[in-house]
Design a protein around this nucleic acid. Structure first.
Lengths: 334, 334
DNA sequence: AGCGAATGTGTATACGTATTCATTGTATAC
DNA sequence: GTATACAATGAATACGTATACACATTCGCT
């Protein structure tokens, strides 16, 4: 394959200067309509596409966004990624994806300096990750999606995890539950924290106490939910409902319940968080707090684009409601 | 944030020319060890990283691979993507991800000319997609993973779908099944075709006929598997086993079986294909033909790197074995 | 008719790096 | 002691584009 044609080649073909070709490409109004038409025709005939690298070097804009994620195989994260890809591409932006579980932080640090991207999307911000710190320090426009950090001078778009969790808790006590299990994650960020605290607040407001033995703190995998359910449900007097902070854990809990012979929802209600597509599968039929993934991503990418256009604008934190999606894993007892 | 320092800035600091700094950066041997040490120290102090764009423009290499996928939310594809990310990043390569469901083909065509990437990874090649045709025509090194195209002059790494399917069929007939359901996809590529034909061949070799009414052709989503199972299992004399060509469909089939009250494996055996992580979940406990995802990706990326280094080398097609992973959705009846 | 403004185009340059070429200094060979 | 190879470095250039600037032409208005 020969070297791709350059704007200079086409300029010669069209009988104009390279500058004029460039003006046509950038929709510069200062070009005669006739000339423009002629150049466009030549461009089309040659099936020309500008060299993105040269353009980026000149303009300083790459039209590429760096996306940092974790655990792409987790259902919610996969849906989030899918949505990010859709929104970015519909905006004409490319996506470079990094999995921060695989990439050492040094790699990440390099990327920040390379000017490979116009901005960053971080979906897995944790208190102790240096990622957002480095990103912000580098001056690169950055938006936090799904997981936020309080008081951080950074655009953020998150679901209202606290409210969603509160509503889930209220829903349970409203339906007469008083012996409730809570399978929670170590608080590594706002998200897991609020999904825990909001739930506890709802129970506290209703005067329902959570027995310490009903609280299990676990890691993220499905197997951890499974184990937690076995632990909670194999007691002599198991809780009548279990709430957990992600769908993935909820799926594990449903599996664990099945393993110990507990029926859902007859013996135990189960509520998850994220409302992933899989929650609607018959195997799970999981009541879950919905995360407005599409709105989160759309809003976040918009904020990011605005910041790229104007780096000095004030930061915004957007919080979107998380309504409860009720399914068969909880059933009206009354 | 100030403009990042350039090699010229650092050259001044180190008291050398920009050319020497560049020589240090590229490990050019023609530089005095003393000078090199001094420059390296300055680079380190300044926390310098070369501008990737300028470097790429000069060398023609971006150290970035374009990955084209579909349906990231599908469990197997998510695992594949995760693996691709891991392997690429461990090789020092970046990944630009495109979802060809979102991106119109015109977009794709542009990318091919932009020289944004050194090569392509395609995981969803279909006979009629123009993607691989365009990619190859553009002269960009390209490798097909997971889905191949027969007789195509292109590096390819695929699982041995035919053999895996054959083994699944043989396993069923060896265990006495004679009334077997087949939930298949329209043949859009080698993968779905071989997963269908290999299975049929095993049954044919054993003298077991497949009733036409036992064959259901569906789309990719979970719901389609669900519907297929309901159709097959609500007949007066339903098949005693169902094989299907992806785990996602198998999950749908398990759900459908549950919906019509058919017990697995007591009433019906179910076999999927891909052996995703979820197949091991207790909800599914699915027997499935394993795809050696790690080996596929590792081999494929290696081929790609070799082709980038030497575009004229002969193309290779690697086929890796797909062993059957047996779980509770099939049980030894004897 | 004349003059400033507006329009269209070309020339030249810069983005930051890698690399060729020229140049200097130093070591080796005769 | 000179000629020559070689090592180390700097100066200059090119990658392909966008754009500031200069320039020529036309237009609008008195």
């Amino acid at each position: 394959m020969a070297r791709p044609p350059t704007s200079r080649d086409l300029a010669r073909l069209a009988g104009v200067s390279q500058a004029t070709v460039s003006r046509v490409l950038t929709n510069n109004p200062k070009v005669n309509p006739e000339t423009r038409a002629r150049v466009l025709q030549v461009l089309k005939d040659a099936n020309y596409t500008p060299n993105a690298l040269a353009r980026a070097m000149k303009t300083g804009r790459t039209d590429t966004i760096g996306v940092f994620m974790t655990r792409v195989t987790s259902p919610f994260h996969a849906e989030l990624l899918d949505e990010i890809g859709r929104v970015l591409s519909s905006t004409g932006l490319h996506m470079i994806l990094w999995n921060i579980e695989h990439d050492p932080e040094e790699t990440v640090a390099e990327v920040l300096h390379q000017r490979l991207v116009d901005g960053f999307v971080l979906t897995s911000a944790t208190y102790d990750s240096k990622l957002h710190t480095m990103a912000l320090a580098s001056g690169t426009p950055t938006v936090l999606l799904h997981r936020g950090i309080d008081e951080l001078e950074c655009d953020q778009v998150v679901g209202d995890n606290w409210q969603g969790a509160y509503d889930a808790g209220k829903y349970l006590v409203d339906h007469g539950h008083t012996d409730i299990g809570l399978v929670t994650l170590v608080h590594t960020g706002n998200t897991s924290r609020d999904r825990d605290l909001g739930f506890r607040a709802a129970l506290a407001d209703a005067g329902v106490k959570i027995k310490p033995s009903n609280v299990v703190s676990v890691g993220v995998p499905h197997a951890d939910g499974h184990a937690a359910a076995e632990k909670l449900l194999s007691r002599k007097k198991p809780p009548t409902a279990i709430y957990t902070v992600t769908d993935l854990l909820a799926f594990g809990i449903l599996d664990g319940a099945r393993a110990v012979g507990a029926r859902v929802p007859d013996d135990v209600w189960v509520i998850g968080f994220d409302n992933t597509e899989m929650a609607a599968w018959e195997s799970f039929d999981l009541t879950s707090v919905d995360q407005p993934t599409h709105a989160i991503v759309e809003t976040g990418v918009n904020l990011l684009r605005q910041r790229i256009a104007d780096p000095d604008r004030p930061t915004e934190t957007v919080t979107l409601p998380c309504p409860l999606a009720i399914r068969g894993s909880t059933a009206n007892r009354h």
